[in-house]
Design a protein around this nucleic acid. Structure first.
Length: 207
DNA sequence: CGTCTGATTGTCT
DNA sequence: GACAATCAGACGG
């Protein structure tokens, strides 16, 4: 991986939250692990657009040690622990307090490494959920939170394919409670024809 | 195949 | 003390 390879997409990463959520679809997220390099194509994202978003950890300007990465500028990785046991990866966007949740990837490189880390055999089940992909790629808060993906040697983005708007399906975001009207907004984006999106594809999809 | 529920603990009030 | 941007497994059709 050379500086030039990674720069192709990453230099365009300073985008408004919804734009970033859609632009990340089709791009390759890459991670260096002791066992080798693993890569996957992002096929599902969600936008958490800022302090006005009642579904966001940054709602009402809330700023705590946990969500500090949401305020650290475009490209900052925000890794948080959820339900005490799992972790989720976000990438901050242009606006202060906004980030994109990476919800699913299609495993492409280092598939056996990821399969072993997850302990499942079926390819489709390796990373079809926000915490599953963190387990598969060894993304832990302790290592990754607050790192900028444009500068990190642990994680980076490579140019994949641009997914045309016509191939992007939308739905409500998954798992939100008490988000009011914001829970009804279509801020989840996924590759319509991909088999690697999380399990709510048919239930909530509009494309 | 779709829907529901229990597990489990860091984080914030 | 209550909650949570989830997951795996169980259950019913």
């Amino acid at each position: 991986m050379t500086r030039d390879e990674r720069s192709a997409f990453e230099t365009n990463l300073n985008l408004p939250c919804v734009e970033l959520a859609k632009a990340l679809l089709g791009q390759l997220i890459c991670r260096r692990l002791p066992e080798g390099v693993v890569k996957g194509m992002i096929v599902e994202t969600e936008a958490y657009v800022g302090p006005e978003d009642k579904g966001s950890h940054s709602y009402a300007g809330r700023r705590t040690p946990r969500n500090e990465a949401m305020y650290m500028g475009a490209g900052t990785c925000y890794v948080y622990r959820i339900y005490g046991v799992y972790e989720c990866l976000n990438i901050s966007s242009q606006e202060s307090g906004a980030a994109v949740l990476i919800r699913a990837i299609e495993p492409l490189v280092g598939v056996d490494i990821m399969r072993q880390r997850r302990g499942v055999s079926e390819l489709i089940k390796i990373a079809n959920g926000p915490s599953k992909l963190c387990i598969a790629m060894g993304i832990r808060k302790h290592d990754i939170d607050k790192a900028n993906i444009m500068a990190s040697n642990e994680m980076w983005l490579e140019e994949g394919m641009k997914v045309p708007e016509s191939d992007i399906a939308k739905s409500k975001r998954i798992g939100l409670k008490n988000a009011g009207d914001w829970g009804d907004k279509e801020l989840r984006f996924f590759v319509a024809q991909s088999e690697f999106v999380s399990r709510y594809k048919r239930t909530l999809g509009s494309g």
